[in-house]
Structure formats: C-alpha cells, structure tokens
Write a protein that binds this DNA or RNA. Sequence first.
DNA 1: GCTCTTTTTTTCGAGCCTCGAAAAATATGT
DNA 2: ACATATTTTTCGAGGCTCGAAAAAAAGAGC
Lengths: 413, 413
Amino acid sequence: MSVGIRHDDLRKRNRAMVISAVRRAGQVSRTDIAATTGLSHSTISAISADLIAEGILAEAKGAEASTARRGRPQVAIGLNPEAATVVAVVLLFNLLSVAVVDFSGRVIAEERKKLSTFDLSEEELIGECIAMVRRQTARPAAAGRTVLRVVLAVQGTTDATSRKMLWSPITTHEGIDFGGRLEKAFGVPVTVENDCNMIAVALRWHDPDRYRDDFIAILLSHGIGMGLVLKGELFTGTHSSGGEFGHMVHRPDGALCRCGRRGCVEAYAGNYAIWRSASGASEDEAPVSDISADDMASLAALARDHDGPEREAYQKAGEALGYGLGSLFALIDPAPVAMVGIGARAFDLIEPALRSAIAMTAGGQHSKAISFATYADELPLITLGCSMRALTFIDAEVLAAGDPAASRGRDVA
Amino acid sequence: MSVGIRHDDLRKRNRAMVISAVRRAGQVSRTDIAATTGLSHSTISAISADLIAEGILAEAKGAEASTARRGRPQVAIGLNPEAATVVAVVLLFNLLSVAVVDFSGRVIAEERKKLSTFDLSEEELIGECIAMVRRQTARPAAAGRTVLRVVLAVQGTTDATSRKMLWSPITTHEGIDFGGRLEKAFGVPVTVENDCNMIAVALRWHDPDRYRDDFIAILLSHGIGMGLVLKGELFTGTHSSGGEFGHMVHRPDGALCRCGRRGCVEAYAGNYAIWRSASGASEDEAPVSDISADDMASLAALARDHDGPEREAYQKAGEALGYGLGSLFALIDPAPVAMVGIGARAFDLIEPALRSAIAMTAGGQHSKAISFATYADELPLITLGCSMRALTFIDAEVLAAGDPAASRGRDVA
DNA sequence: GCTCTTTTTTTCGAGCCTCGAAAAATATGT
DNA sequence: ACATATTTTTCGAGGCTCGAAAAAAAGAGC
C-alpha cells in the first residue's frame, strides 16, 4: 500500500514542486511560484532561498525589466545551468548519438555516428556507447562538469526497472544489460528507455499547449512504435516498456509481420510493409531488413505522381493505422496524435485512408476532433526526451532531498 | 500542475491512510498499522485515538485472543459499522437494485425489482430509483441511519465528472442527469458509474490475492463491457467512463454491431451476436433487442451436445474475444482476466477458440500465463463495487478531514 | 504467588514545517 | 518628496511527526 507521509517528506516534496515549477516556466518570480503551487509566500521564500544557496536555482541578473509596473519589481528565478549535468544516449538502427546537457537543458556537447548495429557483438555495442559518452564528456565545453545521470533510449522493449534492453530490432542479441554495464562504467544511475516513450516525453516539453495531459506519439519507421501519455503521465506497462501499438491486430491471419505473427498493424504500415505491398509482393513474403530513407522518398514520390500500387500501399497503411487508432480510441479518449519519423513525411498519402478508417470505428466518433501533427525527424525528439527524463528525475529525487553528497556526481570522462 | 502539500494536509492524508489500512485488513492492531503505513507508533497512536473518539473506528471488544504470545496483547481495531451509511443503486436492463450498506460494508437493507427500462420515460427511471432508495432507507434495519453517499451503477457511458449517464443500452433517452437529480432528492453526493468499472472495484475486495494491481474484468452479456485496473487504479478515460473493449475492431467491415458500426468484438461475442450466428442469420442482420437467460442456456446446451452452428457461434465469439484481448495485451501487460455475467456460464465453449486466437497475437506471447476466472452473476459484484466505491470515498474525503459537520449525513428517507 | 521478560501502547519534549501578519524593500505616479 | 502599489522577507504561532522513555498487560520461570 502507499506509504504514509513522514514529516520530513513534506519539505522534500515542496522543494521538488518548486524546482519543477521553475523548470516548466523557465524564469518565474516567487509570487508566481506561490500561485502555481498553492503554497504560501513565506514558504516559497524560504525554499527558494535554500535552493539558491545550494546553487540549484539562481536569480536572473539580466533583469529584462518586464512590464514596468508599479511596486517592487519581481525577481525572476531560473535554473542554474551548472547545478548538474546529464547525458542522453540514443541507440537506433545503425545510429548512435550522445548529447551532454546542462541543468537548464542546453546541449553543451554532441556527437552522432553511423555504425552497423546488426554486425556488432553485445560487447561492441556497449563499448561504442561508453566510448562516445567518454569522448563527449571529456570535451572542453563539458570539462569539469560532473554527470549526475545517463539515460539511454533504444528501439524495442525494456524491462520494468528500465535497466535492460529485452529485445530490439537493431540487433540479434537479447537482454543486453545496458543499465548495469553503463552504471559500472560511469558510477552514476543509468536507465534504459523506449525510444517512443522518450518522444512522448519530448513532445510535452516541445509544445506543452498541444501535448498536455493526453496525447499519442506514433513512430512511423521500419516498424511502428507508440508513446502514450494519459492523465499527464507516461503510460507504460507494469512489466515491460509499454504500448506495442504496432502489434495490435488489424486483420486476423493477415499479412506477415516482422515479429513472425500475422495481421499486426505494422505488417501493413511499417516501411517494409508499404514497400512489400507497393512492389506487388505477397503478404506472406518475409520482410526485408531495411529500406533507406531515399528509397522510401522515391516510393512516396511515385505514389504522389500517379494512382498505382505505390499509392495503394500507402492507403493500406493508412487503413491499418486508422483501424488501430480506432481500437485504441475505444479504450482511451481521443487525443491529439503526433506522427513522427520517416513515415510522417508521407503522411499526406496516409491521412485520407486513415481518416476514413477511423471514422468507421467507435473510437472515431469524433474523428474530426482528432488532430494530427507530423515530425519528420525522430532523433532530436528522442534526445530531448532523454535529457528531460534525466533532468526531471534529478529534480525530484536528488536535488529535492537537499543532501549535498547526493548532488556530487562523478566525472565520467 | 499538482499542488504543493500544505501543512494541514499532512494529518488528513495520514488519517486517510489509517482508515484505509483498517478497511483493508478488517481488524488490525496499532502496531500493524504502523508497519504497513511506515508511520511511527506515536503517530498511529494519536491518530487512532482521534478516530476512535470520533466514532469512526472502534476497538474490538470481542478480543479473540489470537496467538497467545508473551507481552501485552495487541488490541484489534476495526471499522465502527455505525460511523456512516451508504447506498448502492444498480440500474441494469429491466432490473433495478438498491442496497443500503453500513460503514463496515455489511448490507443492512436490500431490494431488487424487475421493470421495463425500455418503456419508461426519463422521469420514470429517475423516479423508480428515488422511490426504491427511500423505501429501503426507511426500513427498520436502516432507520435512524444517515446516508452519506449514493453511488449508482449503469450500463453504458457516463460523463467525466460521474454525474450523467451519457448513453445506455437500457433506454433510448440520452444524457440523463441521475447525479444531479438524485442529489437534489437526497441532499448527499451522488455519482454515476459504469457497471463494469464497479465489477473491477468489487473484484479487488472480493479476492485481493488474485486481483491486486493489474487485472481485467470482462462482462459477457447482451453486449461486451470491460473494467480495467492498472497499477492499482481503475483505468477510466479522462472524458468518458472508459474502456469500450467490446467496440475494438475485430474484423474491419465485418459483422453488424449493435452500435451501428461493423466488425466490433461485440458483434461476434455479445449474446445477440452468438444467437444470430447460431441461427444461421446473416452478419448483416440487425441485432435483436434481448435474449433471455434461459434461451442462452438452451443455446449453450445445444452447443455442448453436438458440433453444429451453435458450437461454431461460440467459437467465433471466442476468436473475437481472443484477438481483442491480444490487441489489448499488446498495449498493456498480460494480467488475470475475470469473465463475468451470463456469457461466463458458457466460457467452456468459448475458451478453446479464445486461447488459440490469443496465441496468434503479440500480446499472447505468454498466453499460458493469462488465467481466466468466471463469475456467472454480475449483480452482486456491481453492488459490492458501488458500496466500496462509496465507502472508500467517504474514508478519504469526508472522515479523513475530521470535520464533524461533514460526517453528519442526511436522512434520505 | 511473585518476579522477570516481552510486547504493545501511550506520553512527552524536541525539532521541523507551513502559515498569516507585519515589516522591509523597491519600484511608479504625482 | 511623498503616496501608492507590489514583491519579498521576517517572525512568532500552531501543528505535526518522531524518538525515547514510561506505562500497561500479558506469559514464563521458579
């Protein structure tokens, strides 16, 4: 059962609330914080004085005299960028990316590199990650900073404790303990997250007006992934990493999916499925392992140019996505959808069939109210999501505790 | 954003925690409460003294000398049955039921009655509910008790604030404001809940070992409903009452559903669908409005007796449920399933096809781990769910506040 | 039957925390 | 300059939880 509230938890929670209010607003006055948190001015004053003394927050000296009003002017408080540093690692198919991020969320060092994930051994995959993190944290811009946390995003499923990558399409190896290995290498907490979940986290920070309490991020790529936020919280399974939207059943006993089963949404809407369908191959044909962005772009161009098998393939994809979303919206309330990744570049080809399919479902009752936005590039979003995940964790767990020892990270370089 | 914790919230929350610990355990000692809540003995002592003084809890005088151990014996604390009274109203197709329940959850007055819901006007439906509640709260057993809350369960969808019944298969009237009307009549808070959600709530209290943090209740009746508990909380939509499992899409453009669309799970697994299929009618044929329990029993008997269209109809139902659950389990982690209602009596006919269908899906990876239990009768569960919903609300909101005025209910008779 | 041991429950003072009111600080308007 | 307006800090009061110690209430041993 949920545990009682100890007296000392009180301060910790309220400190966390203040930090979170500042992170969300960027620059806020104490008065504003008091208003959003519902705490009294005196409490906010005391807490923010502590946080400033500890170097977590800082008063803005830049004093951009906002609206010249009467009375004592508000003093803007912001995050102290040097309070902590985190690292976002993104490991995708044939691509590794690392970003070192300061406490305010600014990227201070970054690298990305192509590699053949499928040909690398488990040790090599781990080694590449560790090496790139060391390389970037050692750069002058990041020198002297101590990293407090590392978040690694991967395609595929992770375990409930966010320590292992259970399965991923980028490699044949299973159950790689990235969390444990990276923690051992760096001496700071490391979590492994699903790429689509990080996209969802990122969207909230990227566009809080549109992506507030309930929304859906769908990654249209070689496979189909989903990140779901419900009631303001990332929706993940209790045991695994969460919603395998791509493997909901579109047509029982239908097209062959990469997962070996039949009729999954992905088996109609994944890049390989669109390619297979456009090339006139049988739905029983085994999926190809990869299709370049250029090839997909050419395919989309053909589909836009004339009515033919290419256009039909995109329509089938739209239909599968529409029925899938319809079934999803039978379970949850309709919400804004973000289409992310290469497939989103061809969303114009997908949308009509998607909309008419969703209109045929119970979930699509208000299908006109469901709005779609597209984001062609997933990597920046995944990186942003990892950074914010790491930072908000530090906000809540490390800095809110107010234990100076805990905020002393390690020099991971 | 979530609001800060005021100092006076502390006591309220911890009081709520103590009450909830006692409700769950039935009879517990202060030491046990301290252990489960994590609060200190002194705090528990102070809080329980208050609660006993306020007549919310009571020391068990019965003193069934548990295990004769050394040391001062534990004093068992339990709920004081007379601390509050609530009413559970269940309005189903052609059936109305009312139960008056004391603070410990015991039913002290009960009535159920057949009526033709489809033929009644909106006013008559509301009137029947009010009349039966008045009748039962006026009975000697419940006399003198003051009711603190009423919870009404209905089939169909409710609004986000649990005040209105938006749509229900039991009547043609839409948007009936049961919440408002009953509150006006009785002068105490009234909420309107979905029947399947109440079944889910009930199962947690009925068998906490099996139905703990994650499980699914599926109502197999004329239609198909679902109640879902994830991470210990009832899963409901932000706007409507929640998971319309029965209207997930099983076969795009498939059999005609009661909702007017095509291919829903319900259009294969609802009573009317099984009946239609068994009678050899076309999938395009409009669903009949009701089938008696006896007729369904005869149908099941025929199906058990020999291989024919009846048996095949149940197989189709199993297949639809299996693929539906497979898609659901793609989104959430596999969890125990409770099959409730008339359809559960024929689960032996449904299960084989259900299991082979679910095994074809991604969600069914560990299909052997998914266990099914059946409950032939839904009404007792719905009533229990309503009672517990009302009582736990009172625990958390009314009694935890410690405001004597708030705990003075109204005599609704 | 008396004392010792063990376990539960209560009591009591210390230490925090938040709050409201008042004071201090720091602007603008006139 | 002085009045006004607004933000921020200060300060004492009241409450809450905690740990330690005391009190209560049994069984165990002789």
